[in-house]
Amino acid sequence: MILRKGLILSIITFCFIAICVLLWKEYFRYSLPTIVPSNYTSIKTGHHTSLFKEYRDPVLLHFFNPKCPCSKFNSSYIQSLHRRYKDRITFFAVVEQAQINEYKGLFDFDLITDDGSIADSFGVYATPQAVILKEGKLIYRGNYNKARFCTDKDTYFPEIILDSLLSNKPLPNMPSSATKAYGCNLNSDLNYVTTQ
């Protein structure tokens, strides 16, 4: 009886811990800010790069990792965003070389395979992240929403930026919740970290 009770209790404990671990790994972990890589160099908005200079329309780079659960949280939102702005804005999905095989045409826009250099150029170290460029100038780099599932109506940050850009309005100041990264680290950074 006692043995059985103990066995059941240990099974329950094991399962519960396992569930907690799983949920943590797949879910709650992403509620915390992403660890900043040690060699991270912050790139400020307004920084000019040679990348995507040729595009006249604003460009939105969607840093995406198909393996990252957090990246998938807002995929549907990204799709709807693309549908709304595709005529005036060019969308690109940026996927790292390592995860390119898992990406299976999830989005309706073009894919760019990154070896880490593009991310580094814009100071991106986590997915999902949005980067908005206007003729090579970094306009915005940050989260899509305060909420991971892009459910907060007041904090659709890229939309605010894009609307301002398209209507040539001065860009509003973004709160810290817009720039503080949540989600998975980029694979290149992790590699870097581990190789350190």
């Binding site: 059941i8 799983l22 797949e26 879910y27 659960p69």
Partner: peptide
């Protein structure tokens, strides 16, 4: 939301937890 991993792992663990209890102590209300 493409949450197979959680659906399968957490769901399986939960079922395992339940069925093993049922199997081990069918005479109890545990």
């Amino acid at each position: 939301y493409d949450t197979y991993l959680i659906a399968i792992t957490v769901g399986s663990l939960t079922l395992f937890m339940y069925f093993s209890t049922l199997k081990l102590a069918p005479d109890k209300l545990w």
